[in-house]
Amino acid sequence: MTPTPFFRRSGRRWNTLVCSILFCCACAVPAQAERLKELVSIQGVRDNPLIGYGLMVGLDGSGDQTTQTPFTTQTLTNMLSQLGISVAAGTTMQLKNVAAVMVTATLPSFARPGQTIDVTVSSLGTSKSLRGGTLLMTPLKGADNMVYAIAQGNMVVGGAGASANGSKVQINQLNSGRIPAGAIVERAVASALTDDANVMLELNESDFGTAEAVVEAIDRAMGDGTATALDARVIRLIAPGGPRARVSFLARIENIDVIPALASAKVVINARTGSVVMNQAVRIQDCAVAHGSLSVVITTKTEVSQPNAFSGGTTVASPTSQISVNQAGGALQVVRKGASLADVVKGLNSLGANPQDLVSILQALKAAGALRAELEII
């Protein structure tokens, strides 16, 4: 008896074998190593937000309407009084080239007085455009109400617009922009890197497996006992004393390659846009899904009833509406379990659902226990 060639056997057995081989190959692929500086941050070394209130002048007639934004005229009056110019009480100022703005910036770690930082300027009142404006000297304060920087300069707006006879066209946003190097740092934030023997590292995401991998990689490169994991996020390092030695030590630490633990399966759903994003750890079990969509269409037409000549009647417009309800078929579809993200996507696409319907389907799959992932709605 001539044996049947292996590739001519049952298609199901052949497909099962191929899927098993692909799954084993996928599992055999090692995780990609990442530099430690991509996974952790140094505790206490952080940026600080700054905020300020100021005036933007030199606008081309697109400033605030003073009748609707009285704080603009109040601010201008206070500023003029500080410059030695007094404005009589009750004076009505018709300002078209001035706008009240909020100024925000980020003070980076280790910033020193005299350095410059970028600032973002946004309209606070009824200004139509800040294009071509100049920001007057504005103090920027931190959460402790202390002034850390002074902002001033000409703003760059990445937009354009024009209007005439009731028509208007606009590209991008005209009510906000940036001033590159528009603020000068006046006060430094105390550094967290003191002469203490311990330096704390914080993982960007809490994970016991990644914390253990980081400790092993640091000890392997710097010597046993250098790193100790305090919990799933914080890792304590025994660092040398002295600024030069400590900087050199942290520079070597940041460039150590670490293989992080596999991320937990997660599906992120944006409820506002209907976007669905899932990572490679998402898995799905065998299940049956039936999903149908219901659409209601309302069409309204206006019919005009014209009276006969010399009848003395009036023309009447009567709207007529037609309502139709359409329901798509919701046949039961079998979704096979997937061993990879591609299988999961293929199974969900077989349902023929749009992104908005897919959100409901994923929630139902999670409730039924067929979706092996955490749902996060943002």
Rank of each mutant, 00 (worst) to 15 (best):
G132L: 09
T77M: 08
L341D: 12
R336L: 12
N349Y: 05
M93N: 04
F110A: 08
G142D: 06
F7K: 08
C287M: 14
S191R: 13
Q43I: 10
P139F: 03
S176K: 15
G292I: 13
P108M: 10
A317Q: 03
Q65L: 06
P243F: 07
Q285M: 14
S127W: 02
G330Y: 01
V157P: 00
A217Q: 04
I284W: 08
S318D: 02
F23D: 03
F249Y: 10
L250T: 07
T75L: 09
V304T: 15
V267H: 05
G63R: 09
V214G: 06
I259M: 11
E38V: 08
Q356A: 14
V119D: 00
G90L: 02
I85K: 03
T92C: 00
T134A: 09
I256G: 11
N165H: 09
P180T: 00
R9W: 08
V40C: 07
A368H: 14
T210S: 01
G242D: 12
I323E: 14
L365M: 14
N97F: 08
L22W: 15
L362S: 05
T75F: 15
A33W: 01
T299Y: 04
P113H: 15
S163G: 10
S123I: 00
A190V: 04
V29E: 12
T91K: 11
G223H: 02
G153H: 00
V345F: 08
T320E: 06
A151C: 07
G330M: 09
S176C: 04
A213T: 00
Q280M: 12
M200I: 15
L130Y: 02
D286M: 10
L362A: 07
F71H: 09
T300N: 13
L83H: 15
P260Y: 10
T104S: 13
Q363E: 14
T106Q: 01
M155C: 02
T302A: 02
T126P: 12
G223R: 05
T67E: 12
V234K: 11
G114R: 12
I256C: 04
